[in-house]
Design a protein around this nucleic acid. Structure first.
Lengths: 205, 205
DNA sequence: AGATCCATGTAAGGCGTTACATGATTGC
DNA sequence: GCAATCATGTAACGCCTTACATGGATCT
């Protein structure tokens, strides 16, 4: 699943410009998929060349001229086939959590700031979801269950994250023993000290 | 925050080989950061060249020879400075949620399979966290609060995801109206039909 | 005997991010 | 007037993913 597929998906709701599609991504997939113009415009060009979409340029009555993309029948079939074959991956890449893991090496003030910032970020995204569901877009996307499911999912997960941080941030401050000052002592005495027990600590799975 | 930084971080716990570091990433950051050998080995080579780590080759008594990396004082300082400056981003890239958004275009059997698969995956990761915390790695990582916080965070978030899916998957099956059969009708009559109201539906934020 | 684990790397390719470049219009 | 929004692209760079290549040791 790449930006091309997402563009096809966006166009199942009707014709749109690259700019429109970006806004659609932000409002609908903001918390689970991100794409910039640098991916979207090239993707649309490739899709046009492949015959999966067509483009027509409309002189903008108000504002610049717009290039409206339209999903062809071939494109729609390709999208459906792609959907069926898509593996449902779910990847998280969080420097926030890495930072939290190394909290004992972070200045307490910085740690606090990072936690506050992340909480604000979560709050903001939660509000965006609410706004998205209340602000009734009249185009039918809100009626279908998939949209509600994804919104609800985001709310559940980010709400849980917020609650967890609020109730557990207190324990994060104090470092155990002298870890912060002398972290380079050999804790992992491997292959020399205990040749019999391989892999203590790393492989738990 | 890239793989290089993560390697430095891993080495704050003591000397390790590239292979060890990969295992460490999997067990500790598996649910929030991923890195393969293709990133780790080049990263370690660059770090060595930059003088942030040193490498010594140990002939393996049992098994192949190991190249043990050691964090230098310069490296440790660089890591701490990098940590302080790291922006706490948290990105999710979920084809699973995209699939759920387009659930109305998916064959019901496939939809069910995808949901089951994702539930199993969540269950598996939750078990891995429990195993990680119970399986007492004797190297001190478990004692410090950062590790507990990250584990708890993962448990809270993934538990919430699991519960949400279980209680809301039922509503996902039936598609509203004829969306699946004729999705290409113009729902977004824009700029022609209603030139007064720009941007209905897309921009809610 | 065959699979799996330990262990280290290289090389190419893919994909996205970021920065740059441009310009009209609308609201404050 | 100035900022923000609308609107479309290009180009370079960076970073990771995937596949390839190799080989001993242990376990079943």
């Amino acid at each position: 699943m790449d930006v091309k597929d997402l563009c096809l998906g966006a166009l199942t709701y009707g014709d749109a410009t690259g700019y429109d599609i970006k806004k659609f991504f932000e409002s609908t997939f903001g918390h689970c998929f991100q794409a910039g113009y640098g991916s979207i415009y090239p993707a649309l060009a490739e899709l046009t060349e492949a015959g999966l979409v067509t483009a027509r340029t409309e002189p903008g009555q108000a504002g610049p001229s717009r290039k409206l993309y339209h999903l062809t029948e071939t494109g729609r079939r390709a999208f459906l086939a792609g959907l069926k074959a898509t593996e449902p991956q779910h990847k998280v890449k969080s420097e926030f959590l890495v930072l939290m893991h190394f909290a004992h090496l972070l200045p307490p003030a910085r740690l606090d700031a990072v936690l506050d910032q992340h909480l604000r970020e979560l709050e903001r995204k939660l509000e965006m979801i609410d706004a998205y569901e209340c602000g009734g877009a009249g185009d039918g996307r809100l009626q279908h269950p998939g949209t509600r499911f994804v919104c609800g999912f985001g709310r559940a997960v980010m709400g849980a994250a917020r609650d967890y941080i609020r109730t557990h941030r207190r324990g994060l401050g104090q470092h155990g023993s002298e870890a912060a000052t002398r972290s380079t002592k050999q804790v992992r005495a491997r292959s020399k000290a205990s040749p019999a027990s391989k892999n203590r600590g790393y492989t738990n799975a």
